[in-house]
């Protein structure tokens, strides 16, 4: 059975803009992938729909069983936040291509490493 893992070094996984996000991925796949990609993305949830934006990625050459490290600079924006009707989270996702086995870990990117909580005024 395929297995993929992704994790970051920092605990808790909360970053200020510009801070380095370092981590590693490990995978053991049933099939040989073309490549394995680590993606840094934001993801919104709303009343009904979700939006996704991949802001950076790094691709590793295909190997069926491997361990890799990665590093990104935390983007300036958008901030992680939780509101009354919309929430935005950041995540690091590892995807094996083309079969799309994947795993991800959620992180916070906001000033002071603290996700905003938007009140109802």
């Amino acid at each position: 059975m395929s297995e993929m893992k992704i994790a970051v070094r920092k605990h808790p996984a909360a970053y200020s803009p510009g801070e380095e996000i370092a981590g590693g991925v490990q995978w053991k796949l049933d099939k040989m992938p073309q490549s394995v990609e680590v993606r840094l993305l934001w993801h919104t949830t709303g009343r009904q729909f979700e939006d996704v934006g991949v802001v950076a990625s790094v691709r590793f050459d295909g190997a069926q069983d491997d361990t890799q490290s990665f590093s990104f600079a935390a983007p300036v924006a958008p901030y992680s936040f939780t509101g009354q009707v919309v929430a935005l989270t950041w995540a690091l996702e590892v995807v094996a291509l083309p079969h799309k086995e994947n795993a991800r870990v959620e992180i916070v990117i906001a000033p002071g490493g603290k996700a905003l909580e938007l009140p109802k005024v």
């Binding site: 893992k5 970051v8 086995e101």
Partner: peptide, 30 residues
Amino acid sequence: MLVRRWHLRYKAGNSPLGLMAFFNQPLSAR
């Protein structure tokens, strides 16, 4: 060795979503 430590963190629930989404659609591909 490094990855093993991360794995333990994951098992301990340090990942807020506890995300091991095998065979699910990648979030970034939606």
